[in-house]
């Protein structure tokens, strides 16, 4: 068993950061600066609550209520010409405010505009599926559930898409350790050989530079071969290396015998 490490502080940084450093911000502008976006926002505001809206990098960002997501996307698709959902996923803000931020990146080919719908949900709060509006949301929502653990209602096939079905945990959460928790570390051993095999196979070697020349199970020893599982430290290793040349040589090539070889020291001889 590995030592249990609490998983709630894996985001903590151990390196020095400047207290007075201010990250450069992407400038935002008013929605009224762009006539097309202003009209779109007015159409959304007529039916739904909008908490915030601005333009950033020539794209409008609109914050809505999470329960309105289906209605807003339907309005955008059917009446405002945003016919493509190019991307959607969730952002983990659990450490900061205990919430997920869901975003829907929309594209209008007729208006040549991109628009982003955003909303916040709590960790255990469910959000409505938009896969009946956009087919691309089907797999995106499955991936969002798989990686983040956000629950999606009314989805036709709510199963994991990337990780195995019996996986525990959601790997893209900030609290998930990069090298996996204990379940992940033993997943393939438990699944194939059973938990009894953990002691025999041993923990994962995470140091990829590690080489154990006395390990006759994992490392095959060319030249000084020993049977698998042979205890080299206790029994010693063969002094003379194995010769892989054919006995008696092959056609036109004699076998090299080390004892018969003569080392010429005088180069001018």
């Amino acid at each position: 068993m590995r030592a249990y490490k609490p998983k709630d502080d894996v985001q903590k940084k151990s390196y020095y950061t400047d207290r007075y450093w201010v990250a450069p911000q992407v400038p935002t502008s008013q929605v009224e600066d762009d006539a097309v976006f202003a009209a779109d926002l007015a159409a959304i505001k007529a039916k739904f609550d909008v908490s915030e809206a601005y333009i950033q990098v020539e794209q409008m960002v609109v914050y809505i209520k999470p329960e309105d997501n289906y209605g807003v996307l339907e309005l955008l698709r059917d009446e405002l010409g945003y016919t493509q959902l190019s991307e959607m996923s969730a952002i983990d803000w659990i450490a900061k405010q205990g919430q997920f931020e869901i975003f829907y990146q929309m594209l209008s080919m007729s208006k040549r505009k991109r628009l982003r719908i955003k909303c916040f949900i709590d960790e255990k709060q469910a959000i409505n599926s938009v896969s009946t509006l956009f087919r691309s949301a089907d797999w995106s929502e499955r991936e969002m559930y798989d990686m983040m653990g956000t629950i999606v209602n009314n989805h036709p096939y709510m199963k994991r898409i990337l990780m195995p079905d019996d996986w525990e945990g959601h790997p893209l959460r900030k609290t998930y350790p990069l090298q996996g928790d204990e379940f992940a570390a033993w997943y393939e051993v438990d699944r194939i050989y059973g938990k009894e095999a953990r002691d025999i196979i041993g923990p994962e070697i995470r140091d990829s530079a590690e080489v154990d020349r006395f390990d006759s199970k994992r490392f095959s020893r060319l030249g000084h071969e020993v049977p698998m599982g042979y205890d080299i430290k206790a029994n010693g290793e063969p002094e003379k290396g194995l010769e892989y040349q054919e006995e008696g040589g092959v056609f036109m090539i004699e076998k090299f015998v080390e004892d018969d070889a003569v080392i010429i020291k005088d180069r001018k001889r």
Binding site: L178, Q179, G180, A184, E188, V189, I205, R206, S208
Partner: peptide
């Protein structure tokens, strides 16, 4: 050894 994929989803060497 798992190589550069020192992550949760990769088997750290097929000899496991």
């Amino acid at each position: 050894t798992g190589g550069m994929f020192n992550t949760y989803a990769t088997v750290q060497g097929v000899d496991r």
